[in-house]
Design a protein around this nucleic acid. Structure first.
Lengths: 155, 155
DNA sequence: ACTTGATCTCAAGTTAAGTTGAGGTTGCAT
DNA sequence: ATGCAACCTCAACTTAACTTGAGATCAAGT
């Protein structure tokens, strides 16, 4: 009952974590961390060691690319769970997701341009007053409350 | 020797922390935190309570505005120490500092536009491969190493 | 004098995205 | 059978910008 090669899981397809790290450029600890977040779900050997499938390489690629685009791991997780049955994203899925990401980026660019324009109108006014300043008092109040980092900028 | 009103520090100019909070919209704890960072230096009463000068209101305004513009507290501190004798920024100082900030913002906008363009070229290709992806393999490698948050986005 | 609200200090918690290290186990080649 | 690299878990540390809480003190009105 083993004659056809189809669907047989050869050991060559079971990738240990170190090789995953080498092939993705991630650290071993980061990969374990992603598993903890539920972003990848490797199988285990009888001795409890992780073994990844080749589709996990694709999943990790997706994570890394989406991160470059400014998504948080939480958002990436959400995006991947949007897919039917938690499936690894295909080219078709990617088109849908990346279009959504594009909109985000556009939005953030627009936001920064508004800020730049406000600043332009403000350079030289020197008001430096919270009551009057157009930068500090924009129409949109987005004062995020609660603990945690406020504004960490990339670059 | 007290006849002229000049330079006499009336108690009306000594603002307790609660009033500072009310007037700036900050929390009391945030104001204490800023003091810890060296951004403001209130005087103390005989009973060790903080008393702020009116110029501290201006200093705090500066901090809040600069934060809206995406500077970290460290950068703000640096900017204020750039000024002669740690002086509270005036309108003139503001012009110099805000011009520098403008350049930063421009740079970040440009960076995001490059990313958007890369994404445009990539939507639909569905390569999702780390070896080939133009998003994941841009010319500029800015993989920040070390602990701490990686990329927290505002908004 | 007393009470009440405002302050004080100092330690610990929060989030994100990981890293680092200790102490112990596995798996493969010889 | 043995050696050793690779693997395992779990806890603690990192940064930024604060918040929350405990336990104590201050200031001002009655």
């Amino acid at each position: 009952m083993q004659r056809s090669m189809a669907k047989t899981l050869s050991s060559r397809d079971l990738i240990p974590i170190g090789e995953m790290a080498r092939r993705t450029g991630l650290s071993v600890s980061a990969i374990r961390f992603y598993e903890g977040k539920g972003l990848i779900e490797p199988v285990r050997t009888s001795g409890n060691q992780r073994r990844f499938l080749r589709s996990d390489l694709r999943r990790v690629s997706f994570i890394l690319i989406a991160q470059q685009l400014g998504l948080t791991l939480g958002e990436i997780d959400e995006a991947m769970r949007t897919l039917p049955h938690g499936r690894t994203p295909t080219a078709r899925d990617w088109r849908v997701i990346s279009a959504a990401i594009r909109d985000r980026i556009e939005g953030r660019i627009a936001e920064m341009e508004r800020m730049r324009d406000r600043l332009d109108g403000c350079i030289g006014c020197g008001c430096l007053s919270l009551e009057k300043c157009a930068i500090y008092n924009p129409d949109d109040q987005l004062s995020s409350k609660g603990p945690g980092p406020r504004t960490v900028l990339v670059g």
